[in-house]
């Protein structure tokens, strides 16, 4: 199947957040204490999961497999 980046096939594999009160739910959530750590964790997870990091610009990154 061909999937482009915006297709419905996108799936949230992980959430990396610095706002503990803002996130909950089904995907694995990783909390970071500051933005630097958040960026680092997200980039590691991106390489591990072959997923893309998206910034929701509210202190939360999501990793999505396209």
């Amino acid at each position: 199947m061909i999937k482009m980046e915006d297709s419905a096939g996108g799936k949230i594999l992980a959430v990396v957040s610095i706002k503990k009160d803002r996130v909950s739910g089904g995907a694995p959530i990783f909390f970071a204490s500051n933005e630097e750590e958040q960026e680092k964790v997200a980039s590691y997870l991106s390489r591990i999961l072959d997923a893309m990091v998206h910034d929701l610009e509210n202190g939360t990154y999501i990793l999505v497999k396209h």
Binding site: A42, M52, V53, D55
Partner: peptide, 9 residues
């Protein structure tokens, strides 16, 4: 085009 999360990227 797309949302790119990581700043170095």
């Amino acid at each position: 085009i797309i949302n790119v999360g990581l700043k170095p990227m």
